[in-house]
């Protein structure tokens, strides 16, 4: 199965989520107007691109064997346990988001902060939209998505992911020396296809061990 590239329409914006990423528990009038002006500027400038590939999966102990490549990680093996198939995907909202963040990083850090938060919310929203799409298309349930750098899954698994998905060519996502992606508002992850129904992203914090996280959702 080869790499599939998809472009999505903008998923609905969630202002509450953006404010959470910006470190705001409540927002006063000035903050809301700041948010509104940032949203206005961002709206037409983003792209919503995903490329993905489906793999047959064999797990033995801490080795996840995707055929084309193998990954050693106890946490990933646990996450994908019971799945015969998994999707590896990469998603991005494009380089324009980085330009806006950089621009306001220079000119108005308050806007940079909000742009940064919008970028975080956008890429998560895109991943959610993609997962929902896959669920429908494959008529299956999904394991919570699992990215390089989570638990004991080494960050440099990124190299393999970016290579097997041909990311630079497909959606313009490249890796730098520190294994970070550019554009920065990009995500790669493993997605186990399963028959058991797991958490939706709205409850994602419930499944995370990092109890002291500043962004922990209070649901």
């Amino acid at each position: 199965m080869s790499v599939v590239t998809k472009t999505y329409q903008a998923p609905p914006f969630c202002e509450r989520e953006i404010l959470r990423y910006a470190g705001c528990k409540t927002a006063n009038e000035e903050t809301l107007s700041l948010l509104a002006s940032c949203l206005e500027e961002v709206k037409e400038k983003l792209v919503y691109k995903v490329c993905y590939r489906e793999f047959s999966l064999r797990i033995s102990a801490d080795i996840c064997d995707f055929g084309a490549f193998r990954v050693r990680s106890t946490h990933l093996a646990r996450n994908l346990a019971g799945c015969e198939k998994a999707i590896v995907f990469a998603a991005t909202v494009g380089v324009e988001m980085d330009r806006l963040i950089a621009k306001y990083g220079r000119l108005a850090p308050s806007k940079a902060l909000v742009m940064q938060a919008i970028g975080a919310e956008r890429i998560e929203a895109l991943c959610d939209a993609f997962c929902e799409d896959i669920k429908q298309e494959k008529r299956t349930a999904l394991k919570p998505r699992f990215g390089a750098g989570y638990g004991d899954l080494p960050l440099d698994t990124q190299k393999q992911i970016v290579a097997v998905l041909d990311c630079p060519k497909r959606i313009g996502v490249c890796l730098n020396e520190s294994m970070l992606m550019s554009p920065s508002k990009s995500v790669t992850a493993f997605l186990g296809l399963t028959h058991t129904v797991y958490a939706t992203s709205a409850q994602k914090c419930v499944f995370c061990d990092k109890k002291d996280c500043g962004f922990r959702s209070e649901q």
Partner: peptide, 14 residues
């Protein structure tokens, strides 16, 4: 004291 959040702090700083 956490009565003012980061965006407000930054707007004031600007």
């Amino acid at each position: 004291k956490k009565t003012v959040y980061l965006p407000q702090l930054l707007m004031s700083a600007e």
